[in-house]
């Protein structure tokens, strides 16, 4: 590992956090505008995070500290494997299975940290989040499998690069049903309505975040920011043709996030088993049809 790479990694970490926090601020602004409010300034999330880190915090035991550190580190490490522009990744490799499984170390860390706080609300939130993961991972995996079976490569950079040369090559055109399924799954992935069972402030007191205060809450905010970067980036690389420059990448990410925020604003929440059923029935069947058509009938692929 060269020193240039380490510098890249540090620089990119700030980039992820800045992009993610800006998106969060803009997301609140979008919601506010849709509700005919002025809304907070776009940099509100930065203020929130700085304030959180300036407060005192409580931790119940060493596992809580460890879990949250592991959570943010896991997601940042995942982001290092995300191709940004022209298939370039800070870590120099982008196997999609690595991304999908490395992401879960973030979720595991978060789950572990908040479970260690000993609050049943937190654990109920985690049990919902894991159950929901059962719902969205399967459709998402099916779409990725469809792409791999066409392309013969499970590297995300290769998938992004294969869509170069105009909008007609984008996977959103080539895998329309797959995109629909992925969009539904994506909504559940970032935990926006109608799949915000995990947070559900009115039911389980914001679920996993119930015992987090001060810098732990700040870390949870950063976690969400990096998660937004990774998951919107996944959508951009899988469906929206990747990007040739970093600002094009961020622009496309914002389009994905904007769509999801609009959906978030107009929907209410499902019950947890309804949510999973909905994901399996709709996202699952779209993805399954796409997979079978692509793999066995060679339709939609080229």
């Amino acid at each position: 590992m060269s020193s240039k790479m380490i510098l890249d990694l540090f620089g990119m970490t700030f980039f992820y956090i800045v992009v993610g926090l800006t998106f969060m601020g803009l997301g609140r602004k979008i919601t506010a505008r849709l509700q005919r409010r002025v809304g907070p300034p776009w940099y509100q999330s930065f203020l929130d995070v700085f304030k959180c880190f300036s407060k005192t915090s409580i931790s119940h035991n060493y596992i809580m500290d460890l879990g949250l550190i592991m959570a943010l580190a896991g997601l940042i490490a995942t982001a290092y494997f995300m191709p940004v522009a022209k298939g370039w990744t800070p870590a120099g490799s982008s196997s999609i299975v690595v991304i999908l499984y490395l992401m879960t170390i973030g979720y595991l860390g978060m789950a572990m940290g908040v479970s260690a706080s000993g609050n049943p609300n937190a654990t109920i939130g985690i049990s919902r989040a894991l159950a929901l993961m059962f719902g969205y991972e399967i459709p998402f995996a099916m779409i990725i499998l469809a792409m791999i079976s066409v392309l013969g490569s499970s590297s995300l950079s290769d998938i992004a690069m294969s869509q170069a040369g105009g909008i007609q090559n984008w996977n959103i055109i080539r895998f329309p049903l797959g995109f629909l399924a992925a969009e539904i799954a994506f909504q559940a992935m970032i935990g926006e309505k109608p799949y915000d069972h995990m947070i559900a402030p009115a039911e389980i007191a914001s679920g996993p975040m119930v015992e987090l205060g001060g810098k732990f809450l700040g870390i949870a905010f950063l976690l969400h920011a990096v998660q937004l970067f990774v998951e919107t980036g996944l959508m951009v690389n899988l469906f929206l043709g990747g990007a040739s420059t970093w600002y094009e990448f961020v622009g496309k990410q914002f389009v994905v996030y904007f769509t999801s925020m609009v959906i978030n604003t107009v929907f209410a929440r499902y019950r947890i088993e309804q949510g999973i059923k909905h994901l399996w029935v709709w996202a699952g069947s779209f993805a399954a049809i796409q997979l079978v058509l692509t793999r066995y009938f060679d339709i939609f692929s080229r």
């Binding site: 002025v38 809304g39 907070p40 203020l47 402030p201 975040m209 119930v210």
Partner: peptide, 22 residues
């Protein structure tokens, strides 16, 4: 909090638990 007066423009918002609130 809602559209008419919108306190979120000052960065004020509701939170669920005392651990998170200021």
């Amino acid at each position: 909090m809602t559209s008419r007066f919108d306190m979120e423009r000052f960065g004020i918002g509701p939170m669920a638990t005392p651990r998170q609130a200021d």
